[in-house]
Nucleic acid binder design. Sequence first.
DNA 1: CTGAAAGCGCTTACAG
DNA 2: CTGAAAGCGCTTACAG
Lengths: 353, 353
Amino acid sequence: MERRPTIIDVARKAGVSKSTVSLVLQNSPSVREQTRQQVRDAMAEIGYVYNRAAANLRSAGAGLIGLVINDLRNPFFTEFATSLQMALSARGFATVVANTDEDPRLQAQVIAAMIEHGVSALIISPAYADGDGAFDAIARAGIPTMQVLRKVDARVELFPFAAPDYLAGSRIATAHLLDGKARRIAFVGGLEGRSVTQERMAGYLEVLKSAGMPPLTLFGRSSRSFGRDVARRLAQEHPEVDAVVCFNDLVALGLIAGCAEIGRPVGGAGLRVVGFDDIEECSQIWPSLSSVRCGIAGFGEAIAATILGWLEDGRVPPPESRTAVQLMIRDSSALSPAPRPGSPRHAEPEVPS
Amino acid sequence: MERRPTIIDVARKAGVSKSTVSLVLQNSPSVREQTRQQVRDAMAEIGYVYNRAAANLRSAGAGLIGLVINDLRNPFFTEFATSLQMALSARGFATVVANTDEDPRLQAQVIAAMIEHGVSALIISPAYADGDGAFDAIARAGIPTMQVLRKVDARVELFPFAAPDYLAGSRIATAHLLDGKARRIAFVGGLEGRSVTQERMAGYLEVLKSAGMPPLTLFGRSSRSFGRDVARRLAQEHPEVDAVVCFNDLVALGLIAGCAEIGRPVGGAGLRVVGFDDIEECSQIWPSLSSVRCGIAGFGEAIAATILGWLEDGRVPPPESRTAVQLMIRDSSALSPAPRPGSPRHAEPEVPS
DNA sequence: CTGAAAGCGCTTACAG
DNA sequence: CTGAAAGCGCTTACAG
C-alpha cells in the first residue's frame, strides 16, 4: 500500500520527460511509436495507474456523471438507472448514483455532494417539490442537467426534460379496455396533483369523455400494497367496475394479487386490468399483466447518448422530448380467459357476492 | 457557466489569505469565530463550491466508494445497493456504482475505471470467475476492498468476505418443510458448482440426509422464467414432489406463477414452496411466499459501517463474517390453505392429471 | 490566530 | 518529436 507511481516515475523508468508520458496517455499523434512503446512498457512494469482527479484539475470534465433517482427500489427506476449506467460505462464515463426516497432535502444534499465531486453532468428523476433549491444550486454551478421521467422544475431550457409519452399510453390503454366492451373503467393509483399522475390520467379521462362514460379515480401510493387494498374496495364499493387502468405496474400487480386473494378472476369475463411501465415481471406472472411498455431500457440508453452529445459535442437537448410507448396486451385484459395448459378446462372461481 | 470561484476568490472577498479559507473549510479550531463568519459570508456571496478533486490531490481519500454488482436488476441486489448507498451518503461518502451483468470482463473494466477515479474503497458482489485479474489490479492499487454476498477470490485476508448465513437458511427452510410432513422435497434453481448454490443447497442436503430422504435437485438460472418452467416439469416428471426449497425468491415466484398457470395449488395440501432472500414482493403476492429473510437492507447498512470503520479507523474487517437469517413462514408453505377473505369457502383447482 | 510557500499528479502552451 | 515551466484548486507544515 505504498505510494502509487506517478508519471514522473514512468518518465524516469522510460527515460523520457513527464510531458512525453502525458502525451502518450492522451494518445497524442506527436509521439514516435517507439517512444510510445517504451513508455507503455514502463507503465506496465511499475504498475502505473492513471489519476483522473489530477488530470481533471488541469483540464476539465471528470468523466463522472451524477444520477439522482427518487425511488431506486422500484423496478422501473432500477431498470432505467442500470441501463443508463451501463451505457455510460461503455462510453468511458463512471456514474455516481444516489437514491432520494422522494425526499427533497435528501435530494438537495446528494446533489450538493455530487457537485463537489465535480460531476460533468447530472441526470435527475426528481422528488416532487424542490425543497432546498437544489436546481438553483445546479444552475449556479453551471452543470449540464436533465430532468427525466418527471418534470419538477419549469425551466426546461436550462434543465431539459425527457420522458415516455405517458399521455398516449393512458389513451391506448383506456381505448383498449373500451374496445373490449368494458362498462365501467376505473383509474387506480398515483398521488393526486403530481405531474405524472395527471398525464397518466389525462388520456384516460379524454377517452372516457368521448365515450360518454363517467370516470372513477382511486388515488393512492403507487405500491403493491395499495393495489392489493384496492381489489377489495373495488369489489365492495364499486362492483360495477369491470376494467381498470393502473397508474403503474406495481399497483396492477398488487391489484391482481388482491383479486386472487378474494377469489375474483382477472381477465376474460373477470376484472380486466392494464398496468403501466411494463416491467419484466408483467410477462412472468400468471395471469400475465397487460401493460403500457415504456421501453425504459432503451430510454436509459437514449438519455446516455443525449447527455454525452451535450457534453462532448455541445448538442443541447430539446427542452422537452417524449418517447413512444406501446400497449402490450396479455391475459389480464384479454377477452377470453387465459388458457391453462395441462388442465383441459378450468372452472373460474366465482366472484364474491 | 463561467469559471467557478476558488478559495482565492473567497480569500480576496473576505480579506484573508487562502490558507485561512482552507482552514475554515476544514473546521479547524484555530480560526477566530469572527474570521470564520467573514469567510462563510464571502463564500455564500460569491457562490463558492468546494472542489474535492483538488483537495484529494493534496491529501487523500476522495470520499468516493465504488460499488460493483453482478446483477443490479435483481431486487435482492437492488435493495442491497440502495441501502448501502444511502448509508454511505448519510456519512458523507458518494457512491459510484456499476452493474456487471455477471460478465468478468466488464467487471475488470469497471473496476479499473473506479481505481482511476480514485475510489477510497471498493465493495464488490463479484461475477463468478475473475476473468482479467481484476482483484490483482485492486491488490496492486492497495485499495481496501470487500467481497460481499459471493466469495470469488480466496484471499479473504486481503478481500474480507461478508454474507448472510446461507447454509443456516437452507437448513431451517428444509426442516420446516419436513416438519410439515413433506414426503419428497426438491431443491430448485441455482447454477451447479457456484459457491452460493452450494451453500444454499448444503443445508438442504444435510437435513434430508439425516431424515433419510433422497434429494432431488433441478439446477438452472435463478430467474422467474426458470421457476415457471420447473412448475410444469415437476408436475410431469416428479409428481411425487410435494415441497420445494428454491434457490432464491425469483425462482420461487416463477414457480408459483407456473403452478397458477397449470392449475396446481400452492401451500396447504398443494405444493409447498419456500423461497430465499425475502424480497419485498414475497409478502405482497397471493398466495404469499415463505422465504428465508436475509435482512438485506440491514446487511447493506452493516457493510457501510464496516467499510467506513476500515477506512476511517483502520479496523480491518474479519476475513469472513456471516449474518443471521430467519425463516418467514407464509401461505406458500403453510399446512392449511390460505384463507380467502370475502369468499366464504373456495374450491381449489384440481391438480392436472 | 494568520500568511507565504511548496507540493499533490497531471496538462498545456511554448521552446527547441 | 521532446523538454522545461507554469498552473489547475486545494492542503500542509512552517513562520510569524
